[in-house]
Nucleic acid binder design. Structure first.
Length: 91
DNA sequence: TATCTGACGATAG
DNA sequence: CCTATCGCCAGAT
């Protein structure tokens, strides 16, 4: 099918956009949904460059927030109704 | 085309 | 609990 032009970046962006307020997903989850399990690093690259994308709904597998922006990240998550403790999402 | 980097993941210590 | 190392992929230079 010619519709196979679904690039990794485009795919990731779609997954994030489909998330609902308060819906948390890990980089690995997004990568797997995008069709590239293990490409969690590439996902982070997309979120960083992509604009207008709710990157704050994406966290690391350990529940750790974004390094270098933990404050801003935790702030947005809490605004969505997510409980954040010490730079980590509450289980 | 090659090389390095990086909003990661898992395992080892 | 934390830090360090290896493996993964995509993007930038």
């Amino acid at each position: 099918m010619a519709a196979e032009r679904a690039d990794f970046t485009d795919r990731v962006c779609a997954v994030i956009e489909q998330l609902r307020p308060g819906e948390l997903v890990t980089y690995g989850e997004v990568a797997a949904e995008a069709g590239h399990p293990g490409a969690a690093r590439a996902v982070g690259r997309v979120l960083r460059q992509a604009e207008g994308l709710p990157w704050w709904r994406v966290v690391t597998s350990t529940g750790r927030l974004v390094p270098g922006n933990e404050e801003d990240h935790a702030r947005r998550l809490q605004a969505e109704g997510v409980i954040v403790q010490d730079g980590r999402v509450a289980r």
